[in-house]
């Protein structure tokens, strides 16, 4: 996984609540056996009409947000399925940071596995940032110092955010989770031996 670096970009305002994984990437795109190439279909049904033509009023189709790396949205973002195609499509589009007042658990977790930073802030704070995003102001996301900053009318605004330490480290260092766990393979074997003596039937299951 790539290391998470400081982001400087304007932000896409998407003030909708309960944006679900079917909205983020509809099922017809889940048939892929690859992780890449999903960005063009991100928010497909909001972004394109029945004839596949871009819907001008949708925010992703507006030129000024073409290269945005930040998405600012409503509460319970990413609810629904566990499909990692949702963060894959977001990352493939070029978004590396999502700001909302809350996220669905599985989606939130999946973000970190793909180098995306989801930031939780109070609803009132998110509303302020939405406004700034609508004015296409440029934001800086500094994960190291857990700070979002932007200039509005020559005034520098700074917003701090909370983040679990393990998740922060994993993003900053782009860690290989599996490799880290495999380094503790002795613990896993010990556990299996213990469990086998305590609940032996778990180890003798055979298809009949």
């Amino acid at each position: 996984m790539e290391k998470f670096k400081k982001i400087e970009s304007n932000a896409i305002p998407l003030p909708m609540v309960n944006v679900d994984t079917d909205m983020i990437i509809p099922k017809q795109f889940l048939k892929t056996i690859k992780r890449t190439g999903l960005g063009k279909n991100l928010f497909y049904e909001l972004r394109y009409d029945e004839k596949d033509a871009p819907i001008d009023s949708f925010v992703l189709n507006q030129d000024k947000y073409k290269d945005s790396q930040i998405l600012i949205t409503g509460k319970n973002f990413g609810c629904g399925s566990s499909r990692e195609h949702a963060p894959w499509s977001i990352l493939d589009y070029g978004i590396k940071c999502i700001i909302a007042s809350s996220f669905a658990d599985i989606f939130y977790n999946n973000c970190f596995k793909n180098g995306i930073l989801p930031i939780k802030l109070d609803e009132s704070e998110v509303t302020k940032l939405q406004k700034a995003a609508e004015n296409s102001l440029s934001f800086t996301i500094d994960l190291e110092n857990q700070k979002i900053s932007y200039f509005d009318k020559n005034i520098n605004h700074e917003v701090s955010f909370e983040l679990d330490k393990a998740k922060k480290t994993s993003l900053l260092e782009g860690l290989d989770d599996i490799g880290l766990t495999l380094a503790k393979v002795n613990h896993i074997s010990d556990f299996e031996n213990k469990q086998k003596s305590r609940t032996p039937w778990l180890y003798s299951q055979q298809i009949k």
Binding site: R83, I178, T181, I188
Partner: peptide, 20 residues
Amino acid sequence: WGIGTSEVEHVLATQTLVQT
């Protein structure tokens, strides 16, 4: 519980998950 594909890979390789 439901997991994403990265965790599917983690379970296949290690039969464990890192959780809080």
